[in-house]
Design a protein around this nucleic acid. Structure first.
Length: 143
DNA sequence: TAGGCCATCTGGTCCT
DNA sequence: AGGACCAGATGGCCTA
């Protein structure tokens, strides 16, 4: 585990003395703080797992170094927009492979992202679906 | 050694 | 009331 702030521990607000509170209340508050810290760690670990999964599907041209979180998001945005543009252009100009392209294009519409992803749970599917729909709407390339 | 990135703690806010 | 989410603060690690 990564080291923590020297002034902070899992016991929570050590700066706040037991002062006027009863020992029971202090203990309850401490216990709640520790539980909240644990939940927050778990939440952030989940977020980092999602970032790792995103890094795996995003191009890293010549990058031997791991992309930062910010870079990963920027790259994902560029990548999605580029793919969308490619499909939109190809769909418009390529007659011989029209049927195949239509199929691919349909597959990357927001309502069909599920065909590109695997989910660990229904809850995760809902969460990812809502997130992708929002981002697609926000950054959609209008041909 | 400075700066970037990250993990963790913490208190506030919103939601169930 | 308690959990989820968020942003600010802080300190550690790594690299140029």
């Amino acid at each position: 585990m990564k080291s923590r702030r020297a002034s902070c521990t899992d016991s929570g607000s050590e700066s706040s003395e037991p002062d006027s509170k009863s020992p029971e209340k202090y203990e309850t508050a401490t216990r709640r703080r520790m539980a909240a810290n644990a939940r927050e760690r778990k939440r952030m670990q989940g977020l980092n797992t999602a970032f790792d999964r995103l890094r795996k599907v995003v191009p890293q041209w010549g990058q031997d170094k791991k992309l930062s979180k910010y870079e990963t998001l920027q790259m994902a945005l560029s990548y999605i927009m580029a793919l969308n543009r490619i499909l939109t252009d190809a769909r418009r100009h390529t007659a011989p492979h029209r049927q195949w392209l239509d199929l691919q294009f349909d597959c990357v519409q927001p309502e069909n992202y599920s065909c590109l992803m695997t989910y660990d749970s229904p809850a995760e599917q809902d969460y990812i679906h809502s997130s992708f729909s929002y981002q697609f709407d926000s950054h959609q390339v209008h041909a």
